[in-house]
Amino acid sequence: MLNRLTAKAATTDALTISGLSVAYGDKPALNAVDARFSAGAMSAIVGPNGAGKSTLLKAAMGMIPSIDGTVRFLGEPLSAVRRRVAYVPQRLSVDWDFPATVIDVVLMGLYGRLGAFAWIGQKERQEALACLKEVDLDDLADRQIGQLSGGQQQRVFIARALAQNADLLILDEPLAGVDAATERLIVALLRRLAGEGRAVIAVHHDLSTVREYYDDVLILNGATIANGSVEAAFTEANLARAYGGRLTAGPLAPTGARA
C-alpha cells in the first residue's frame, strides 16, 4: 500500500478542495474555499468558532450538500476511494450510553472491508484488539463505552479509524476535551501515521500547539485565509485576518472550546 501511495503522492495531493461553497438556508457558511493537503504530512484546520471547519469536512465528504466546488480524495472522487479514507467525528456527536463495548465500536471500522454481511471472527477481533493496543486500551476491550472517560472515548474513535487502515485520516477535533496524557498519545500516533506516508488532517483549536504538532495548516474563516506549511502560512498577520480582534495576544492566546 505504501508503494502505491508514494507513487501517487508525487503527482497528487491527499485532499484537494477547489471552490467549495456551502450555505445553510440563505446564510453562506463557506465561500469558494480552496485547500490542498499533502500525503505524508499532518495538517491542521484552524479558525474562529463558526469559521466552518466542521462544515468544510462534512461538505467535502458529501455529508452536507454544497452549492459549488470540486473535491478530490487521493486524486479521485470520494466514491472511488472511500475505503482508503477514515473519518473521525467529534466525540460528543454520538450517544456514549449506547449499549456497545469498546471492541464493538472498533470493529465498526472494518465495515468498509467486510461490508454488511461478512462474518466477524477471531481474526477480526485480533485486528481490533491490535488497534486498541495502539491507543493503550486493550485492557478495556469488553468495557461498556459509557463507562470510559472522555479521553478514553476519543481513543476508541482513533482505534476505529486505525482499523480502517486508511491512507487519509480526517479528524474533527480529536483533541477536544481530552487529558494531557491522551493528547500526547494521540499526537504521537498521528505523527507516526503521517511518517508512514499517510495524510492526517485534523480540526484543531489550541493555536499554541500548532507549530509543535503540525506540518501544514489551513486557516479558515468562511473562506481560505491561508494554506500551506506552518512556517509559511501560520503567521501573525494571517491569524489576525482570520480571528480579527478576538485574538489579542498573538498565536499563543488560548481559545475557548468549541460548542
Partner: peptide, 11 residues
Amino acid sequence: TFDPTFAAAAG
C-alpha cells in the same frame, strides 16, 4: 444508529 456521521463517511 450509534454514529450516523461515521456511518455515512464509511459508506
